[in-house]
Amino acid sequence: MIFCKSGGCSAKLGPKVLSKVLSKLPKFEDENLLVGFDSSDDASVYKLTDDIAMIQTLDFFPPMVNEPYIFGQIAATNAVSDIYAMGGTVKTAQNIVCFPENEDLNILGQIMAGGASKIMEAGGILSGGHSVNDESIKYGLAVTGIVNPQKIYQNNTIELNDDLILTKPLGVGIIMAANSVGEASDEAMQKAIKSMTTLNKKTAEIMTDYDVHACTDVTGFGFICHLLEMVAKDYSVDVYAKNLPIIKEALTYADNFLITSAGQRNRNFAGEKVSFADEISFAMQEVLFDPQTSGGLLISVNSKDSKSLVEEMQKAEIDARIVGKVTNLNKYKINVM
């Protein structure tokens, strides 16, 4: 079995390690801190006025593609996604750069230009940043957005009988892993790059008109572990494997054991909290644990609204699908069928 290490969100610490560290940090009491790190949400939210709250997030990682400009675009698209997952609007961003001084600085310029292009597309302003001389290249951004305090989407506020909607295809991490050993096709790479450089902006704009109860973006912890954060120990979820949007080549590569070590960490963390029907293949399981870079939004919405929401998103060329249902038949469990 080949365990491929890649850049992007595959470089994240595993959820088990991270949760252990975060559990030891002091809890900060402030009535204006509406969302902190205790719920493992996508970003923090701090109330400024009755009508305005500030969303803060940051994300950075090593390259997962060879083209510097595209890497910068992916990193920025990924960083601003947390703002959209919270229901907010992007306002400002600052670069985070690790780069070797003896390397060609034109490469750094291309990376940052790619990032700036996506911040502009998001409607934000690039306002500064910080750089460190490092042997390995890493890039990302700290992003600030705003949201009405009454209209925040959190990741753990799903409700019974909600439908789950996913808005981008899974499998990006596996394709990057295959590419790192020269096994990914050009077609698969182009599909993955298109997904990773597509902002979740339009998705976020559309869903504001519907009865959305919870939202998160699917990144380094994969579909399953991000869904576990949404369940929050109160519900179970049925996942419809046949409905999932997937880059088809990822299933082929997973069958050939071109998978990531981060995906295995996600699988180990989920443990007995997830069950698979007998017909769910090994490759499908790996796609569900696969760490995504700049993935789609996973939305928990009133079942009365789900069909209309999906139809509107699909008209906007968003590959949205109803992929599951919230139940409470056995609490804190994901059932993939």
Rank of each mutant, 00 (worst) to 15 (best):
G124N: 07
V172T: 00
C98G: 04
P149S: 15
G123Q: 10
I152V: 14
T144A: 10
N95W: 05
G128H: 02
I83E: 05
L164Q: 09
G173A: 02
L164E: 06
Q150P: 08
Q110K: 07
N155A: 04
N161C: 08
S131N: 09
N155W: 00
I146P: 10
G115V: 08
E135H: 08
I96A: 04
D162R: 06
A142V: 15
G123V: 10
G171M: 00
V97W: 00
L126N: 01
A122Y: 06
S117M: 07
L141W: 10
S127I: 15
N95R: 02
K138W: 05
Q110V: 05
G173I: 02
I96K: 04
Y139L: 11
I111H: 02
E159N: 11
I119R: 01
Y139S: 12
D163I: 00
K168C: 05
L108R: 02
I107R: 05
S136R: 10
D163G: 03
L160K: 03
Y139H: 15
P149R: 11
I146D: 15
L160I: 06
L170N: 06
T167W: 12
G129V: 12
H130S: 15
I152K: 12
Y84T: 03
N156H: 09
S127A: 13
D104E: 05
G173S: 04
